[in-house]
């Protein structure tokens, strides 16, 4: 089950980023940031420990979280400090472009051919900052939720009801709650007996993810 989750998530990530890459290329923008996004996305997902992810196995195709997705280029000497995990294997090693080869791209290549740019031009204010100063800032930005508030608009009704439903229940443990996100084909009630037919669902129970194509539920109210 968990392997299935990993494969599914891998192909979702691949396809989303491929679509995004086409967007970037159509607009003539540099799409190398998407390689960073892949690493950040996969690393965050791995940290949730919802299942076995293919990229966690340090497979030959994907250099994974052995270094910080953004600041990993800073050099191998810093990598153990930044990541807090054992030094990268050969598969995670970054290859620095040899200087003076006529191609003066200031970057490093990962072994899957992705170019990791050292710093994008629009980034400012971070020069010389220590990496440990950056993480807390990110947390604060997350709380402000500039993107999240936009993205969550479509779900405001569901979230309102979530709050209401939660408030009726004692001792809720917040975001760790077991949840099913799905579509429904049918919801039926006869007196106090409910039947519901769900489809295309993602389940999180006890911290693990499951997916189903079709789910049937029976409950008495």
């Amino acid at each position: 089950m968990s392997n299935q989750i990993g494969d599914l998530y891998q192909s979702v990530i691949d396809e989303v980023l491929e679509n995004a890459r086409q967007d970037f290329q159509e607009r003539g923008e540099d799409d190398s940031v998407l390689n960073l996004l892949r690493n950040a996305w996969q690393q965050r997902l791995s940290e949730m420990r919802v299942g076995v992810m293919p990229w966690d196995n340090a497979g030959p195709t994907i250099p994974t979280s052995g270094y910080d997705p953004i600041y990993g280029y800073r050099g191998t000497a810093e990598m153990p400090q930044l990541s807090g995990i054992p030094p990268a294997t050969g598969q995670n090693t970054l290859h620095t472009l040899p200087p003076g080869n006529g191609l003066s791209i200031p970057g490093t290549y990962t072994n899957n051919g992705g170019l990791v740019l050292p710093r994008l031009p629009q980034t400012d204010g971070l020069n010389g900052d220590e990496s440990e100063e950056i993480k807390p800032d990110v947390k604060k930005e997350d709380d402000s939720g500039d993107l999240g508030s936009d993205l969550g608009e479509g779900l405001s009704d569901a979230e309102e009801s979530e709050d209401e439903l939660n408030s009726e229940n004692d001792g809720e443990e917040g975001g760790d709650q077991d949840v099913i996100l799905s579509l429904y084909d049918k919801v039926q009630r006869v007196r106090n007996r409910w039947k519901y037919v769900l489809k295309d669902g993602i389940v999180n129970i006890g911290g693990k993810d499951y997916v189903f194509s079709r789910g049937t539920g029976e409950s008495e109210w």
Binding site: I13, T123, D137, E141, D146, V179, L181, L183
Partner: peptide
């Protein structure tokens, strides 16, 4: 639907994008 954004994989993407926006790596 935006429903699946609340799943683990959706949350991971949202958080990563939030970080990238806040550090000006990507346009909103």
């Amino acid at each position: 639907y935006e429903l699946y954004r609340r799943s683990s994989i959706g949350t991971a993407l949202t958080e990563a994008l939030d970080q990238f926006i806040s550090e000006s790596y990507i346009e909103p």
